[in-house]
Every structure is written in structure tokens, then in C-alpha cells.
Amino acid sequence: MLQAINLDCVRGERRLFHNLSFQLKAGECLLVHGENGSGKTSLLRMLVGLTPTATGAVHWQGSPIKKLGDEYRRELLYCGHPLGLKDALSATENLISSMELNDESVTQDVVHEALRQAGLQGREHLSVRALSQGQKRRVNLARLLLQKRALWVLDEPLTALDTQASLWVVGLIDQHLSNGGIAVLTTHQDLTLTGTTHVIRVGI
């Protein structure tokens, strides 16, 4: 269960949101809507613990995430705006090293299978520099298949993706939710998920 309690976000002189609270149970999804610069990414960074909360708190399974530390991070998968890919490495190498940094081991076959599902068959060994924006995004999202985490926090996961890949991602999120996972995502597109979906709008 993910709980946000009275979150405040102030950037410079501007208050982006105030007293924001929500609660997500297993199998539920939160869609965060808002204009550009309304604080969607700031909210997500608070939820994952990158930005400390000035007031209020984020709780995971009833305890504040600050106290849980790595116990929380073990349950969490965050896909942010920078994709976290190294241009000089291939898609396979990127995913393997990303898994290693997360203290999980993975075989090359599993990574290849994930890349195949992401629609990148035949491009596993191409350096990421040679891939298009959408393909890079697919490599980034292939982590959803590799890391078994309960909470997905995805910042505009559909950016640069074509229709087919968008459907693939929506399908993955649906499956995650039906397995009892929780997802928080921001998007500007219209999404239809089969699970329970809450919608909040940030920005005043």
C-alpha cells in the first residue's frame, strides 16, 4: 500500500501543489495529470524518495519510506525522464549493468527475451547511440519485464512510443496490476486500464 499524506511542493516562489494526499492499494493505479511544469515529475520524485518531502510524508505498507530505506527501494521501479542508458553500450549491456547495479543478476538469454518482447529483436547488440528515441524508450521499459518490483513509478512512459509499443506498455501495466502490483504514472495520452484507476490533477 502506497500512501501520500499532505504533500507540498514549492519550487522557487511558486507553489505547485498543496496538501496532496492519496492512497493506493494492491492492484490499483494512479494517473497523474497536469500541464507542463505543473509538478508531475516533482511529485513522482517525492514518491520514490529522490526529493525529500518538506511537509507531509510518503508511506509504504504503513511505514515512512525514509525509515524503510533500501527495503522500500527493493520494491520500487522508477523510470524517469532521463532514460538511464549509456550511449556507448549496447541494449543488452545496458540492461545487464542496470540489473547489476540493482544487486540482481540476470542471464543474457533473459535480457534477449525481454528485448524481443520490447520489439527490438536483432538490435540487441547495437550500441544505444544508434537507436531512435522510441527504441531507446523501449530498452528502458524492458526493465519492467526484468525487475520484479511491486511498485512501478513511471514518468511519461509513452513518450516517443508508437501505437503498437504504447499498447504493449499498457498491457504490461494491466498485467502488473492484476498481479497485485501498484503503479503510478504520468501521461498526456488517454489511457484505458482494466484495473482500478485513480486520477489526480496537479497544478493550481
Binding site: 520514490v48 524518495g49 529522490l50 533500501d70 527495503e71 527501494r73 527493493r74 520500487l76 522508477y78 524517469g80 525522464h81 532521463p82 532514460l83 538511464g84 542508458l85 549509456k86 550511449d87 542496470s98 547495479l101 540493482n102 544487486d103
Partner: peptide, 19 residues
């Protein structure tokens, strides 16, 4: 920092000090 891997490291369950 620029390509976001640092962010991912900070969110890794492994201690950041070790990274």
C-alpha cells in the same frame, strides 16, 4: 548525472556508498 544512471544508482537497493 546527465543520462539518469546516477538517479537509478541512488534508487538501487544497494548502498549508494558502495556504488
Amino acid at each position: 548525472y546527465a543520462d539518469g544512471t546516477l538517479e537509478q544508482m541512488a534508487l538501487s537497493p544497494a548502498p549508494l556508498g558502495m556504488l
